[in-house]
Design a protein around this nucleic acid. Structure first.
Length: 486
RNA sequence: GGCCCCAUCGUCUAGAGGCCUAGGACGCCAGCCUUUCAAGCUGGUAGCACGGGUUCGAAUCCCGUUGGGGCCA
């Protein structure tokens, strides 16, 4: 199957998940069938253009791992890939349509259009341009728009790849604008002209475009071109069931990146919104998805963006990371927390405990919560109540006694034997000797060593921390318990 | 309001007439494990929107209703 698909974002802001999911399906189809994935910037609405948005769009694609074969930055056989740089092609198409009597100049003022609309509203008529200029042959010298002369009756069939034939009454479709007063094309003209010239085979886009698809079908017909396959994919809905939009908060791709979602997790999640491989597979690598992807696997009903599911999937991806890779990805967050760069060898000290941390981190920034104490200098901050835990609640003397006993036990471990199994047996024996539950003894050690009630597994933590620092911190804890004034 | 699309557990979905006593995943609940927190394991909860057809037989096909969504205003 020959596949050429395009992602046509408007540079009006950062791409959000709904938008990028379309790009993902484009990309998957292209990669699956060895076709081309094209990025085309649709910047014909000058008033909405946002400086720098184009780069943000490309960055988002890159972050997700969606590479493009042709685009504004790398060019390609059908360059340029910015609509604002392709104006002559739209003007040519419009001129040809006018010459052939399939489109016409319209000089109606916005005020008149407004009045027409109001009277239609009052008369409960379907709204739309009343075609006043259709047979007037208006002069090109006056300010004008160019409109397509749509068929007056009959129906237009949109053969949607997923839905089959969808028919629209032509009587309900007005003569829409192709070229605006400023000479810029509307989406209706530009996308058709570009898709044709760029040899696009499948137009994959959100279902919100289905309503205007008959206009595009008619434009293709007027121009005498073959239509691409129309693939209107279901919209992604927000928690309020409506179309996902900026209103729903964190929807931009960059925000997800910043919040600590892994690109491969987001990609997997997005792919499963409206598509599925089979009855049971949910975790799939990008390669597996690409291999299995097919338009026929797409569903027709719109899916809700369930952030909980994404979070779970992200946690799963984090757990499955190679430990060394996990540490590399966590490093920026740790550096951010401790305020200094962490060198490779420092980071690799965490290798022994990495897996345990991976099981706990749901979002990458939490990496810092489980590692910052390894790199903290000076006394840790924590409450004495945390130090005492439940077992020694309000009994600082008992906690002190326990900490001192632990200190003696830990000091007596010889440096070469400072390993997780050795530490575990030493401290378990101690608890047994003292006739206490392990938790009672371990809690003060954990808090003293990490400054936190919630931390990675204790013995691995102590091993990683080293004997010297462990003893130092337990000493500090003992001192605090000895003068219970705070 | 008009046109269009859609309809399986709370959510994402499998299901293309008998493999369905409707499967999986997330969530949720319970238990196990347990040094905190997690992870893991076991079990459980919960759904074919409704009504008519077609058929020996319908979650699956047709029609209608209802509901949701999109576009236009």
């Amino acid at each position: 199957m020959n596949v050429r698909v395009r992602y046509g974002p408007s540079p009006t802001g950062e791409p959000h998940v709904g938008n990028i999911r379309t790009a993902l399906f484009d990309w998957l189809l292209a990669r699956r069938f060895g076709g081309q994935f094209i990025v085309r910037i649709e910047d014909t609405d000058q008033s909405r253009a946002v400086e720098g948005a184009e780069q943000l769009i490309l960055d988002a694609l890159t972050w997700l791992g969606l590479d493009w074969d042709e685009g504004p930055d790398i060019g390609g056989p059908y360059a340029p890939y910015r609509q604002s740089e392709r104006l002559p092609m739209y003007v040519d198409a419009a001129r040809r349509l006018i010459d052939e009597g399939k489109a016409y100049r319209c000089v109606c003022s916005p005020e008149r259009l407004d009045a027409v609309r109001k009277s239609q509203q009052k008369a409960k008529q379907p709204p739309g341009y009343d075609r006043l200029c259709r047979d007037l042959n208006c002069s090109a010298d006056d300010p004008h728009v160019v409109r397509l002369a749509m068929p007056l009756d009959g129906e237009t069939i949109v053969n949607d790849y997923l839905r089959g034939d969808v028919s629209f009454q032509n009587a309900l479709l007005d003569d829409h604008v192709l070229l605006k007063r400023d000479g810029f094309p509307t989406y209706h003209l530009a996308s058709v002209v570009d898709d044709h010239h760029m040899q696009i085979t499948h137009v994959i886009r959100g279902e919100e475009w289905l309503s205007s698809a008959p206009r595009h079908v008619q434009t293709y017909a007027a121009l005498g071109w073959d239509e691409p396959a129309w693939v209107h994919i279901p919209i992604i809905r927000g928690p309020d069931k409506g179309k996902l939009s900026k209103r729903h908060g964190a929807t931009s791709i960059r925000q997800y990146a910043e919040e600590g979602f892994l690109p491969e997790a987001l990609l997997n999640f997005l792919a499963l919104l409206g598509w599925s491989k089979d009855e049971s597979t949910t975790i799939m690598s990008c390669e597996e998805i690409t291999e299995a992807f097919d338009l026929d696997g797409l569903g027709l009903s719109s899916a809700m963006f369930d952030i909980e599911r994404l979070r779970e999937m992200n946690a799963r991806y984090i757990r499955d990371l190679d430990p060394a890779d996990f540490l590399r990805r966590g490093r920026p967050h740790l550096e951010d927390r401790v305020g200094r760069p962490i060198a490779d060898d420092e980071l690799d000290r965490l290798l022994t405990i990495a897996t345990a941390i991976q099981e706990r981190v749901k979002l990458m920034p939490e990496f810092a919560d489980y590692t910052d104490f390894f790199f903290a200098e000076g006394p840790l901050e924590y409450a004495n109540a945390d130090l005492m835990g439940r077992a020694y609640k309000n009994k600082p003397w008992a906690a002190l006694e326990s900490v001192e006993a632990s200190l003696r036990a830990l000091r007596s471990v010889d440096e070469a034997g400072w390993t997780t199994p050795a530490l575990e047996s030493a401290l378990r024996d101690l608890a047994e000797e003292r006739g206490e539950k392990p938790g009672a003894v371990f809690t003060p050690i954990r808090v003293a060593a990490t400054g936190k009630r919630i931390a990675p597994p204790l013995f691995e933590t102590l091993e990683t921390l080293g004997q010297e620092l462990t003893v130092e911190r337990l000493n500090a804890a003992a001192e605090r318990l000895a003068r219970p004034d705070d």
